[in-house]
Design a binder for these strands. Structure first.
Length: 178
DNA sequence: CCCTGATTCGC
DNA sequence: GCGAATCAGG
């Protein structure tokens, strides 16, 4: 396993995303395995910062007060949230609050792990069904192959285009099953 | 609180 | 050079 370096590819992607106006944390999420601090640090080192800087906020920071002693740091050794961007239950796009729809079968919420991808990894044929919260670092798209020309894979097409009435009917069917 | 980028500095 | 910790804002 390599030390994770700023390879040319990653730097280029960083530049592109930064110039596209994505936030540092967003970029970090796309790159993976880096924090937004790392992204920001790299951005500055590359000298492509200063993307809209409030002149009033040009704070002449008063130097460093003696930072916490690193001698006996009660560090948990890991910054916690990061690294394992796997298994998250499928977060459905929220429908109208007053809509009382049948919950989708649980197995249907499972997206093949290997298929998920970031926005940068989307191909023309990739399913664009969102997984997780946009804006969060672990946000992904389904990414499964869709040969139908539709923006979703076969399964998510079923969800996306299933008439509301059908889902209502499904609900009553299961709820009143007695 | 959440988030943003900016800065400093130990490594 | 890298990035965590920290800061200053929105």
């Amino acid at each position: 396993m390599q030390q994770l370096q700023w390879t040319d590819e990653r730097v280029e992607l960083l530049k592109k995303l930064w110039n596209d106006g994505l936030s540092a944390s967003q970029i970090a999420g796309e790159l993976g395995s880096v924090t937004r601090n790392a992204v920001i640090g790299k951005v500055h080192r590359l000298g492509l910062s200063g993307r809209a800087k409030a002149p009033s906020s040009s704070t002449p920071r008063p130097r460093k007060p003696p930072r916490a002693t690193p001698s006996a740091p009660p560090r948990p050794s890991m910054p916690a949230s990061r690294g394992n961007l796997a298994l998250k239950p499928h977060a459905m796009p929220s429908s109208s609050p007053d809509l009382d729809l049948a919950p989708l079968p649980e197995i249907d919420n499972v997206v093949p792990m290997g298929e998920r991808c970031t926005i940068m990894e989307l191909k023309e044929y990739s399913c664009r069904w969102p997984i997780g919260d946009p804006g969060k670092e672990d946000f992904r798209y389904c990414g499964a192959r869709s040969n139908t020309g539709l923006p979703y894979c076969a399964y998510h097409c079923r969800i996306a285009y299933q008439p509301v009435a059908d889902r209502r009917r499904d609900r009553s069917k299961t709820a009143v099953a007695r």
